[in-house]
Protein backbone atom coordinates (compact mmCIF):
# COMPACT_ATOMS: atom_id res chain seq x y z
CA UNK A 1 0.00 0.00 0.00
CA UNK A 2 1.11 3.55 -0.72
CA UNK A 3 2.76 4.98 2.43
CA UNK A 4 0.56 8.11 2.44
CA UNK A 5 -2.61 6.12 2.14
CA UNK A 6 -1.36 3.82 4.88
CA UNK A 7 -0.66 6.78 7.19
CA UNK A 8 -4.07 8.20 6.50
CA UNK A 9 -5.83 4.92 7.22
CA UNK A 10 -3.91 4.33 10.44
CA UNK A 11 -4.49 7.79 11.86
CA UNK A 12 -8.08 7.94 10.71
CA UNK A 13 -8.66 4.75 12.63
CA UNK A 14 -6.88 6.18 15.68
CA UNK A 15 -8.92 9.38 15.41
CA UNK A 16 -12.21 7.55 14.96
CA UNK A 17 -12.00 4.90 17.63
CA UNK A 18 -10.38 6.50 20.63
CA UNK A 19 -12.92 7.99 22.93
CA UNK A 20 -12.19 10.22 25.89
CA UNK A 21 -9.73 12.79 24.64
CA UNK A 22 -6.18 12.94 23.39
CA UNK A 23 -4.45 10.94 26.11
CA UNK A 24 -6.57 7.90 25.29
CA UNK A 25 -5.09 8.02 21.79
CA UNK A 26 -1.45 7.51 22.77
CA UNK A 27 -1.59 3.76 23.58
CA UNK A 28 -3.61 3.16 20.39
CA UNK A 29 -1.07 5.08 18.28
CA UNK A 30 1.67 3.06 19.94
CA UNK A 31 -0.07 -0.20 19.12
CA UNK A 32 -0.77 0.77 15.50
CA UNK A 33 2.59 2.32 14.70
CA UNK A 34 5.13 0.53 16.88
CA UNK A 35 3.66 -2.95 17.30
CA UNK A 36 1.63 -3.51 14.15
CA UNK A 37 3.67 -1.75 11.48
CA UNK A 38 7.09 -1.31 13.11
CA UNK A 39 7.51 1.98 11.27
CA UNK A 40 9.04 3.44 14.42
CA UNK A 41 10.91 1.71 17.25
CA UNK A 42 9.67 1.61 20.82
CA UNK A 43 12.48 3.87 22.03
CA UNK A 44 11.94 6.41 19.26
CA UNK A 45 8.27 6.47 20.12
CA UNK A 46 8.91 7.21 23.80
CA UNK A 47 11.35 10.03 22.97
CA UNK A 48 8.84 11.39 20.53
CA UNK A 49 6.08 11.46 23.15
CA UNK A 50 8.31 13.44 25.52
CA UNK A 51 8.98 16.01 22.81
CA UNK A 52 5.31 16.19 21.83
CA UNK A 53 4.33 16.75 25.44
CA UNK A 54 6.69 19.68 25.55
CA UNK A 55 5.15 21.31 22.49
CA UNK A 56 1.99 23.40 22.83
CA UNK A 57 -1.34 22.10 21.55
CA UNK A 58 -3.23 18.83 21.71
CA UNK A 59 -0.93 15.92 22.49
CA UNK A 60 -2.56 13.51 20.03
CA UNK A 61 -2.28 16.06 17.23
CA UNK A 62 1.40 16.67 17.96
CA UNK A 63 2.14 12.95 18.17
CA UNK A 64 0.43 11.92 14.95
CA UNK A 65 1.88 14.88 13.03
CA UNK A 66 5.35 14.04 14.29
CA UNK A 67 5.05 10.38 13.36
CA UNK A 68 3.74 11.30 9.90
CA UNK A 69 6.69 13.67 9.49
CA UNK A 70 9.25 11.10 10.57
CA UNK A 71 7.88 8.47 8.23
CA UNK A 72 7.07 10.53 5.14
CA UNK A 73 8.15 14.18 5.52
CA UNK A 74 5.94 17.28 5.50
CA UNK A 75 3.28 15.67 3.31
CA UNK A 76 3.23 12.67 5.63
CA UNK A 77 2.76 15.01 8.60
CA UNK A 78 -0.11 16.73 6.83
CA UNK A 79 -1.83 13.48 5.96
CA UNK A 80 -1.45 12.05 9.46
CA UNK A 81 -2.89 15.30 10.86
CA UNK A 82 -5.90 15.21 8.53
CA UNK A 83 -6.47 11.55 9.38
CA UNK A 84 -6.47 12.28 13.12
CA UNK A 85 -8.66 15.36 12.99
CA UNK A 86 -11.22 14.39 10.35
CA UNK A 87 -13.23 11.87 12.42
CA UNK A 88 -13.76 14.26 15.34
CA UNK A 89 -14.56 17.11 12.95
CA UNK A 90 -17.32 15.10 11.29
CA UNK A 91 -18.54 13.54 14.52
CA UNK A 92 -18.74 16.82 16.44
CA UNK A 93 -20.52 18.60 13.59
CA UNK A 94 -23.15 15.84 13.67
CA UNK A 95 -23.40 16.16 17.46
CA UNK A 96 -23.66 19.95 17.22
CA UNK A 97 -26.62 19.63 14.83
CA UNK A 98 -28.16 17.03 17.12
CA UNK A 99 -27.42 19.05 20.30
CA UNK A 100 -29.32 22.08 18.99
CA UNK A 101 -32.35 19.95 18.14
CA UNK A 102 -32.51 17.96 21.35
CA UNK A 103 -31.44 20.56 23.89
CA UNK A 104 -35.08 21.62 24.29
CA UNK A 105 -36.13 18.20 25.48
CA UNK A 106 -36.55 18.20 29.25
CA UNK A 107 -34.94 14.79 29.87
CA UNK A 108 -31.87 15.79 27.86
CA UNK A 109 -31.51 18.96 29.92
CA UNK A 110 -31.75 16.92 33.11
CA UNK A 111 -29.24 14.42 31.72
CA UNK A 112 -26.69 17.20 31.23
CA UNK A 113 -27.58 18.67 34.61
CA UNK A 114 -26.49 15.34 36.07
CA UNK A 115 -23.39 15.06 33.90
CA UNK A 116 -21.96 18.50 34.72
CA UNK A 117 -21.12 17.78 38.38
CA UNK A 118 -19.66 14.42 37.28
CA UNK A 119 -17.23 16.22 34.96
CA UNK A 120 -16.02 18.20 37.97
CA UNK A 121 -15.35 14.93 39.80
CA UNK A 122 -13.52 13.43 36.80
CA UNK A 123 -11.20 16.42 36.60
CA UNK A 124 -10.73 16.48 40.36
CA UNK A 125 -9.59 12.85 40.31
CA UNK A 126 -7.08 13.60 37.53
CA UNK A 127 -5.69 16.51 39.56
CA UNK A 128 -5.26 14.22 42.56
CA UNK A 129 -3.55 11.54 40.46
CA UNK A 130 -1.14 14.01 38.90
CA UNK A 131 -0.47 15.61 42.27
CA UNK A 132 0.33 12.25 43.83
CA UNK A 133 2.88 11.46 41.14
CA UNK A 134 4.63 14.80 41.40
CA UNK A 135 7.57 15.31 43.74
CA UNK A 136 6.55 17.53 46.65
CA UNK A 137 9.40 20.01 46.42
CA UNK A 138 8.88 23.60 47.57
CA UNK A 139 9.26 24.82 44.02
CA UNK A 140 6.57 22.48 42.65
CA UNK A 141 4.14 23.35 45.41
CA UNK A 142 4.66 27.11 45.04
CA UNK A 143 4.32 27.10 41.24
CA UNK A 144 1.28 24.81 41.29
CA UNK A 145 -0.48 26.96 43.90
CA UNK A 146 0.56 30.21 42.21
CA UNK A 147 -0.87 29.06 38.87
CA UNK A 148 -4.08 27.99 40.59
CA UNK A 149 -4.55 31.22 42.55
CA UNK A 150 -3.59 33.46 39.63
CA UNK A 151 -6.35 32.00 37.46
CA UNK A 152 -9.03 31.29 40.04
CA UNK A 153 -8.84 34.41 42.20
CA UNK A 154 -6.90 37.02 40.24
CA UNK A 155 -8.40 36.31 36.81
CA UNK A 156 -5.02 36.39 35.16
CA UNK A 157 -5.06 35.11 31.59
CA UNK A 158 -3.77 31.50 31.38
CA UNK A 159 -1.22 32.47 28.70
CA UNK A 160 0.42 34.86 31.15
CA UNK A 161 0.48 32.11 33.77
CA UNK A 162 2.08 29.61 31.38
CA UNK A 163 4.77 32.06 30.25
CA UNK A 164 5.49 33.08 33.84
CA UNK A 165 5.78 29.51 35.14
CA UNK A 166 8.01 28.46 32.25
CA UNK A 167 10.33 31.40 32.93
CA UNK A 168 10.33 30.70 36.66
CA UNK A 169 11.31 27.09 35.99
CA UNK A 170 14.13 28.18 33.73
CA UNK A 171 15.53 30.63 36.29
CA UNK A 172 15.14 28.11 39.10
CA UNK A 173 17.05 25.37 37.28
CA UNK A 174 19.75 27.80 36.21
CA UNK A 175 20.29 29.13 39.73
CA UNK A 176 20.29 25.67 41.22
CA UNK A 177 22.92 24.58 38.72
CA UNK A 178 25.07 27.57 39.59
CA UNK A 179 24.67 26.82 43.27
CA UNK A 180 25.77 23.21 42.92
CA UNK A 181 28.34 24.04 40.30
CA UNK A 182 26.93 21.67 37.68
CA UNK A 183 26.73 22.72 34.09
Amino acid sequence: MNIYLKLFVIFFRVGAFTFGGGYAMIPIIQKEIVENTELISEKEFLDLIVVCQSLPGALAVNTSTFIGYKIAGVLGAFIALIGTVLPSLVFIILIAIFYNRISDIKEIQLFFKGVRPAIVSLIFISVLKLGKNMRRSNFNIIIGLAAFFAITFLNIHPIVVVVFCGTAGYIYVKRRQKHYGVR
Binding site: V127, G131, N140, A147, V161, G169, Y170, Y172
Partner: peptide
Protein backbone atom coordinates in the same frame (compact mmCIF):
# COMPACT_ATOMS: atom_id res chain seq x y z
CA UNK B 1 14.49 21.14 30.98
CA UNK B 2 14.24 24.40 32.96
CA UNK B 3 11.11 25.61 31.22
CA UNK B 4 9.42 22.26 31.84
CA UNK B 5 10.46 22.17 35.44
CA UNK B 6 8.19 25.21 35.72
CA UNK B 7 5.42 24.03 33.43
CA UNK B 8 4.89 20.60 34.99
CA UNK B 9 3.58 21.84 38.35
CA UNK B 10 1.78 24.69 36.55
CA UNK B 11 -0.24 22.12 34.62
CA UNK B 12 -1.64 20.79 37.90
CA UNK B 13 -2.51 24.34 38.97
CA UNK B 14 -4.26 24.92 35.64
CA UNK B 15 -6.27 21.73 35.99
CA UNK B 16 -7.22 22.60 39.56
CA UNK B 17 -8.36 26.03 38.36
Amino acid sequence: NGVFTGLRPAVIGLMAA
